[in-house]
């Protein structure tokens, strides 16, 4: 993907983030994801029905990378099964950490494929992945 196009997609998702609104609903899984090394701080919530992710929301204060990644990630996961979501998360994490990954699974999330070249941005890009992973982990524990 062209670097300028990547930048535009990130910028658009930062300035016009999707699903950036929390709702008062106890049927959602919830987690706060605050970085210990920087000032990103987002609350996430996710609804799962019949093993499918039907909604992902978040809100709070975070940088351009964390916010845009949360926006793109939420879109990528809504409508996926839990197993599909887990595969996306693993491959996304591998991409961010400069390991082998399946590009085909990530769609628009591929805009972050060079983020590992900016070490201080890695934690920002991983923020939504860590939040969703925690919520899915909590789901496992409930079983």
């Amino acid at each position: 993907m062209d670097e300028n196009l990547k930048r535009e997609i990130i910028l658009d998702n930062y300035q016009n983030p999707e699903n950036k609104e929390l709702i008062d609903d106890d049927s959602y899984l919830k987690v706060n994801q605050a970085s210990e090394s920087c000032i990103d701080n987002l609350d996430f919530m996710m609804k799962i029905e019949n093993n499918n992710i039907v909604d992902v929301r978040y809100d709070g204060e975070a940088c351009a990378i964390s916010t845009s990644a949360s926006s793109i990630m939420s879109r990528a996961l809504i409508g996926k099964s839990v197993d599909e979501a887990k595969r996306i998360l693993i491959n996304y994490k591998n991409m961010i950490e400069d390991k082998e990954y399946d590009k085909e699974l990530l769609g628009e999330l591929n805009v972050y494929d060079n983020i590992n070249k900016q070490p201080n941005r890695i934690k920002c890009a991983l923020l939504p992945e860590e939040a969703i992973d925690k919520m899915l982990g909590g789901l496992e524990n409930e079983k």
Partner: peptide
């Protein structure tokens, strides 16, 4: 306006200016 404090900090670092962003 419209830019998260930490993004301003990262931007200024590109101009070799060290400031602090946060609480």
């Amino acid at each position: 306006d419209g830019i998260f404090a930490q993004d301003v900090s990262i931007y200024l670092n590109k101009h070799k200016i060290a400031i602090r962003a946060g609480n």
